[in-house]
């Protein structure tokens, strides 16, 4: 099956396009909201990341996969994924540099107060970034139907 046939599946619909255009910012905000709530209430990077990823998918449904792919460069996705991993690792390893254990957040307390919450937020954001980019990456991958099976490392630690 060639990619031509698949693009033929796309039907342009004003209703869907408008709806998506209106809803998308809210969904993205909601995603961030969920991510930021990971520290001390239900929520977190996993859920938020998936919601964020779904924004791109919505766009793809509305405007066509190829358009979405052009709009969101694959480099951005890869950078988001590895950036997330690196952020996470940096925060974790930072505590080791300060003489504690991996991810022992409260050691940052000496620089900034309430740092535990901030650090957890940051970690959640990093995870959110990873999850979102992986979800998007996989979505593109599935839509294209070829190339490498997994584009980015899954990271659930």
């Amino acid at each position: 099956m060639s990619s031509d046939e698949r693009t033929g599946l796309y039907v342009e619909s004003t209703i869907i396009m408008t709806t998506v255009r209106v809803v998308a910012p809210f969904v993205l905000t909601f995603a961030l909201f969920v991510m930021f709530h990971g520290a001390n209430s239900p929520g977190g990077g996993f859920q938020g990341g998936v919601i964020a990823g779904s924004v791109v998918m919505m766009l793809a449904f509305a405007y066509g996969i190829d358009a979405a792919r052009e709009w969101l460069d694959v480099r951005v996705v890869a950078a988001l994924a590895s950036g997330g991993v690196l952020t996470f690792a940096a925060i974790g390893l930072g505590t080791i540099v300060l003489g504690g254990n991996f991810l022992e957040y409260h050691l940052y307390e000496q620089f900034i107060s309430h740092v535990v919450a901030y650090a957890i937020e940051l970690v959640e954001l990093a995870i959110g970034g990873i999850v979102a980019s992986v979800a998007i990456g996989l979505f593109f991958l599935l839509a294209a139907g070829f190339g490498h099976a997994v584009d980015a490392p899954e990271d659930e630690s």
């Binding site: 977190g44 996993f46 599935l142 070829f146 099976a149 997994v150 899954e154 659930e156």
Partner: peptide, 27 residues
């Protein structure tokens, strides 16, 4: 289970990616 679900989702994704590849190859 939150973790396990994430694992499950990634597995499904990988499986589907593989299936697509199989389908394009073997039809």
């Amino acid at each position: 289970i939150l973790t396990a679900i994430v694992v499950g989702v990634s597995l499904t994704a990988v499986a589907l990616a593989l299936i697509i590849r199989i389908y394009t190859e073997y039809g």
